[in-house]
């Protein structure tokens, strides 16, 4: 397998309003292989969406990506690109789908034109050719009666149809990486399954790598090859999906699983994680999960690095050194 995306030590900062800066994303590193799906899982506010926006330098001002951060696409250093060279990467190498299809499409343009625009931004083709490609894309994402839907406006489509259009836009310039930021959160449950199925199918047929950003562990199982769990601006655990589900090791990951209701097995009381996710201004020194962690011990006052649990399983917790037992 070849590596298509490599993110190293990504740090994103925002002014804190008092002359200093806060770091909602603080040293995130991960990589993506060709054809692979990596799920970035975490609660809202953990920095997962900002991480995805940073891949194409889409962080809204006054936020900024700190120097020392790296995003590499093959041998291209994305964060060093500006202007036209950056534009050529957006959509062409990485396509993006956003959370809310109701507001992510421009209300005053026909959906066919919104797709064709993405094609013509990267390929030198005629309007007619772009339109015919848009038609193919609409068919590919499973929109019935695609010919007439080309001339529909977003408000004339249902939420699920709009999200399919968003996917078609993201695919317009045939990117090798698809970033899906909570692609199903705003949709009905039945529609969620359909959209996820479309994404699975496209990954298989197009051989794309997918970065799936979600707060929902339920959609990760059986869909992602690997999972990275984020907490307070950092990745706290990373493992192949099967292993993470079998043996969640970081106390935060364990807490996440304990708070997800299960349909099989005996009925159990859910155990929510105590307290709430602190904002970046209130992150503690040392391990950031420490104040909410049932297993915190003396060493938690020091910030842990990502430590190996098993060869391809790492977590940001000192317990990894002792195989889970307190030292």
């Amino acid at each position: 397998m070849s590596r298509v995306l490599e993110v190293e030590n990504l740090r994103i900062s925002f002014p804190d309003g008092q002359g200093g800066r806060l770091y909602p994303v603080d040293g995130v590193s991960f990589s993506l292989e060709r054809g692979e799906t990596l799920a970035l899982v975490g609660e809202s506010g953990c920095g997962k969406s900002l991480t995805s926006l940073a891949l194409l330098q889409l962080i809204p001002p006054p936020g900024r990506i700190e120097s020392g951060s790296t995003v590499r696409l093959g041998d291209i250093d994305v964060l060093g690109l500006r202007g036209e060279r950056l534009r050529q990467i957006r959509g062409r190498r990485i396509g993006m789908i956003f959370q809310d299809p109701m507001t992510s499409l421009n209300p005053v343009f026909k959906v066919g034109d919104q797709i064709a625009e993405g094609i013509r931004a990267h390929f030198d083709v005629s309007r007619a050719e772009a339109r015919s490609r848009s038609f193919n894309l609409l068919q590919e994402v499973g929109i019935p009666d695609a010919r007439s839907r080309l001339d529909a406006y977003p408000h004339q489509l249902s939420g699920g149809m709009r999200q399919r259009v968003m996917i078609a836009i993201a695919l317009a310039a045939e990117p090798e990486i698809l970033v899906a930021d909570e692609p199903t959160t705003a949709l009905d449950v039945t529609v969620q399954a359909q959209i996820l199925e479309v994404l699975d199918r496209l990954r298989a047929t197009r051989g794309m790598a997918v970065l799936l950003i979600t707060h929902d562990l339920g959609i990760v199982a059986g869909r992602a090859d690997r999972v990275a769990v984020m907490y307070a601006g950092q990745i706290v655990e990373e493992a192949p999906t099967a292993r993470l589900f079998a043996r969640p090791s970081h106390p935060y990951t364990q807490g996440l699983f304990a708070s997800v209701p299960r349909l099989t097995g005996p009925v159990q009381r859910l155990t929510p994680i105590g307290g709430s996710v602190p904002p970046p201004s209130a992150w503690p020194a040392g391990c950031r999960f420490r104040p909410r962690c049932p297993k915190a011990f003396e060493k938690s006052e020091l910030a842990p690095p990502l430590l190996p649990v098993e060869p391809d399983h790492r977590m940001r917790c000192w317990l990894a050194e002792t195989g889970g037992a307190r030292g």
């Binding site: 889409l58 957006r90 809310d100 992510s104 421009n106 931004a121």
Partner: peptide, 17 residues
């Protein structure tokens, strides 16, 4: 501030467009 502005940029449109 609208989300579709993000979509437009992510597509690779020029700032002018």
């Amino acid at each position: 501030r609208d989300p579709f502005m993000l979509t437009a940029r992510a597509k690779g449109l020029s700032e002018r467009a």
